[in-house]
Design a protein around this nucleic acid. Sequence first.
DNA 1: CAGTATCCTACTTGATACTG
DNA 2: CAGTATCAAGTAGGATACTG
Lengths: 121, 121
Amino acid sequence: MLDNDQCPDCKRINEVLSRVGDRWSVLIVISLAQYGTLRFNEIKRNLGISQRMLSRTLKELERDGLVKRTYHPTIPPKVEYNLTEMGQSFREPVSALGYWALDNLSKIDAARETYDNSAEQ
Amino acid sequence: MLDNDQCPDCKRINEVLSRVGDRWSVLIVISLAQYGTLRFNEIKRNLGISQRMLSRTLKELERDGLVKRTYHPTIPPKVEYNLTEMGQSFREPVSALGYWALDNLSKIDAARETYDNSAEQ
DNA sequence: CAGTATCCTACTTGATACTG
DNA sequence: CAGTATCAAGTAGGATACTG
């Protein structure tokens, strides 16, 4: 995956990760993968994300082709979000990351404590 | 993985991802996974990362127990970095993400173009 | 070589208020 | 309900200069 000397692939990986690799994108994809279809405020409540960031992130995910937005012009309006095919495929590596995170949080905490204790002597 | 109502696991995943999920951490782990052991300036050249960010990120990764730092007190000094066991285990989900990124970059670009074209009418 | 220290800019994120 | 607009604060990240 990597080449020597400035590693062009790293640049491209970097590019993609900077688009869809941020925490909110990851968490939104995980949520949608779990529930199938969610409304705007359902995601908001679920993740504890601010309205602004949810709006922005969903728009980016839609633009990148990972999320499909369906607008129902009722009163009050109803908007549903779900994953596209590419979004589904993104779910796999993302879930792997999520599970790793859950599995290793306590280990990381322990490592931090050890490090901090030895650092302060 | 997710629970309804404020999703406590999301908070924890969020926590871990905010620690080890940033681009530089990911790219450093990928590099070390690829090459086994690297010196400070080898990583720097390889990734095109600034000295400051590399130093900071490596220190964080060491603190979190993902990277082991070995200092050889020679002149000039020589410092080698490699992955710990936990770092190795992190490699798997990270690689999956990297490969997905490479596989889907062009699709994302295409989706963006479509989106932008339909948006401008 | 492998860093640390300082400065500076740009982007990210949240809080708050408002709208169709 | 599902957003947008605006403001304020923090953080990421690079450039540069210096050190053991």
